[in-house]
Nucleic acid binder design. Structure first.
Lengths: 214, 214
DNA sequence: GGATACTTGTTAGCAACAAGCAAGTGAGTA
DNA sequence: TACTCACTTGCTTGTTGCTAACAAGTATCC
């Protein structure tokens, strides 16, 4: 048994793991992916130059973990807010949530987008991770749309999968533009306009009447 | 003066330049950015291991050139097709053109998207290039929208810059999704739906009547 | 003869792996 | 319960091959 001031093996790895993921995020944000070295990550986390390689196997393995770790936080954040909503309401809430996430945790959002960019390279070992996350989000949106069609709030001639692809593409592209040219893109205004356009292009006629007579 | 079978200095650089850019594209497509070496580019182009470094100064310099070279082809392709169109017509034609470009020159489109991804990294020396290209495209779209508003075909309560950002974000995001998960994204169908949604959300009421009575 | 395209020599830094060290763990014994 | 000793696991250091980048040299053009 470890003494009070000592740690179990599991605690030691948990601590070093968190320290290294945090260090990796800082360094990626400062210097980008290619100039972030496994050596600097280990040392900034307070360990030796070799620990990052030992723990994550390779640079790609580490980036994959950072990617998964941030994605998990984002998906939890999103689910908390969207809850059981469906249809256009869910899509609008998700847009608001995304803007809130970007405002509250800009570092997380920036690093995630940088990693998604790196995942575009063929043979990138975390391309699959990015593809899975995007696919999962598209599936969620497609379900919201399908449910909206089923309950009559969304026009029945829209294809849920196609709308979902457009919606995720919009968010992904908007985040990219925000990252590479922050000042010239008014994310919040674009989101507000997007919500208007979502209603204009997806809402069923009956729903339009119902909402206008309120 | 060079003999018939010999070449002028300008011709020599033009030839080696083209050969290296082509080699770089092939290698990036096969192995991704980080596993593409300046040595392999020079050698695949039929030269020594050092020429790529000598000509482009650095790896970032070379990637920047590849990025600019493909972007130029795409923008020419687009301008040929959109011509003097404005408003929703220009936006729809641009969507069709983009799908045509991706279908006819998939390698160009893939490499360009891979490079845009790499440009997301801070300190990436071609981040500015990507920002400029995206900004220029957004400005063009904003002008189309503004012209559409001016001629009455687009509702006058839309903000051209905001719509332009959404439109470019959609194309950028869609290309990313297409790159990382080709089979599950039906680009053509999404584009067709997008054209419908553009009309539903942007078209002015007078234009809707005019088109429906045709 | 000078300038320009291109090649070869060299160096510092990196990822990745292997071998070693140190701290934690758990079964057996009394 | 308390101690021990073999074993496991976290972590560090030594090393190698590869790469970008630069400097110095050679060949081709002007």
């Amino acid at each position: 048994m470890p003494t009070p001031q000592s740690l179990t093996q599991a605690e030691r790895t948990a601590i070093s793991d968190r320290a290294m993921l945090a260090a990796a995020m800082e360094l990626i944000l400062q210097h980008g992916i290619e100039k972030t070295t496994l050596q600097s990550i280990g040392e900034r986390a307070g360990y030796s130059r070799g620990l990052a390689t030992y723990r994550f196997g390779s640079k790609a393995g580490l980036l994959d973990e950072v990617c998964k770790s941030i994605s998990r936080r984002w998906l939890d954040f999103l689910n908390e807010r969207v809850g059981e909503q469906i249809g256009i309401d869910a899509m609008c809430t998700a847009l608001d949530s995304f803007f809130e996430f970007i405002s509250r945790y800009p570092s997380d959002a920036q690093v995630l987008q940088i990693l998604y960019g790196g995942a575009a390279s063929p043979t990138s070992e975390f391309r699959q991770t990015s593809a899975n996350i995007h696919q999962r989000q598209m599936d969620d949106v497609a379900n919201w749309v399908a449910a909206g069609v089923a309950t009559g709030s969304i026009r029945d001639d829209v294809d849920p999968k196609s709308v979902a692809a457009q919606y995720i593409a919009y968010i992904s592209g908007m985040t990219y533009l925000w990252l590479i040219s922050s000042p010239s893109v008014d994310f919040e205004k674009a989101n507000d306009d997007m919500k208007t356009h979502l209603r204009l292009s997806l809402q069923s006629d009956s729903e339009k009447i119902a909402r206008s007579t309120k």
